[in-house]
């Protein structure tokens, strides 16, 4: 998909839904209908998030029959306990997630560039084999992965998670960048080559600046999936308290035999704040870039 289409997705399209034009009765009806439908969908999308958020401000006594109601007294009383459990793990998560996302993006960008523009014999095969890697169920490889980490002496370090997310992020990151670069006309590369620029130089001075939206997508994608990952986190850290991350720490609170729903809700919300913020503030860039690199037939 070319970038002009990407622009069109997010562009205002005045010719169809233009609000300044005088609308006929039928068109007016459809407009109202569309808005009502959109708002109903909005309500359905928001509902679970609303339940999560409001129950974080009700203090310790949160219970089911009252789950949909706004707090009678807004309080932050459950927040210190949730923070005590989640604060350090969340900082740790931020630390490793940022690293793994950046490394993933760089690797994905290089792979994507080569597979889109500097193909070698069998590069299509390589790409297809990479893609298949996106689809494996991770439970299936957990035991060998733990054994591998043990063998290379990585256990006990947060870098086990960096490694896992970088390696298993190669397929999706490569895919996004490859599709992104594929949309850039070859003439640009040709022109660079005529000027005597090397492959690396073309990448650095032409492709890299063009691929900022691709980076945004990959960074957000990897950030979210690493932040929300539970499977790798729980297995590869082996329960070590000095390696607890957001999801495993959250599981301490929500997964115990004794349940305090107030703290449970607060912690769940707290652990979701960073990714929610990312989607709130960077969502539209994400959308843009995602579409430019989506698995598109």
């Amino acid at each position: 998909m070319s970038s002009d289409i990407v622009d069109r997705i997010t562009a205002h399209v005045p010719s169809h839904g233009g609000s300044n034009k005088k609308l006929t009765g039928v068109a007016q009806f459809w407009l109202v209908f569309r808005y009502i439908s959109l708002f109903i969908i909005l309500a359905m999308i928001i509902l679970p998030i609303y339940v999560l958020v409001i129950n974080s401000f009700k203090g310790p006594t949160v219970y089911l029959p009252d789950a949909l109601n706004l707090p009678k007294h807004w309080t932050l009383s459950t927040w210190p306990e949730a923070w005590a459990a989640l604060g350090v793990p969340m900082m740790r998560t931020l630390f490793f997630v940022v690293q793994s996302s950046i490394i993933s993006a760089i690797i994905g960008s290089i792979n994507g560039y080569v597979l889109a523009k500097w193909r070698f014999r069998g590069s299509k095969m390589v790409f297809t084999l990479f893609l298949f890697g996106m689809f494996i169920p991770y439970q299936a490889i957990m035991i060998p992965l733990v054994q591998f980490n043990r063998a290379v002496g990585l256990t006990g370090s947060i870098y086990v998670l960096v490694l896992a997310h970088v390696v298993y992020g190669i397929p999706i990151c490569t895919l996004i960048f490859r599709n992104y670069y594929a949309a850039i006309p070859d003439e640009i590369i040709e022109a660079g080559r005529v000027d005597g620029a090397s492959m690396v130089r073309i990448y650095r001075s032409i492709m890299l600046p063009l691929s900022i939206p691709g980076f945004v997508v990959v960074l957000i994608w990897q950030f979210t999936s690493a932040w929300n990952d539970f499977l790798f986190a729980i297995f590869l850290t082996g329960g070590s308290p000095s390696l607890a991350v957001a999801t495993t720490a959250l599981n301490f609170i929500t997964g115990g035999m004794q349940i305090n729903y107030g703290v449970n809700m607060t912690a769940s919300f707290m652990a979701s704040i960073p990714t929610l913020l990312v989607y709130m503030f960077l969502g539209r860039y994400f959308l843009r870039g995602l579409l430019s690199g989506s698995l598109k037939g």
Partner: peptide
């Protein structure tokens, strides 16, 4: 609308489990 419709992708089911069980 577009961005809000994407919000659910940001939250894991480790966090949303109780909410959905309640709903």
């Amino acid at each position: 609308f577009r961005s809000v419709y994407l919000y659910p992708m940001a939250i894991s089911f480790i966090a949303m489990g109780t909410v959905w069980n309640w709903l």
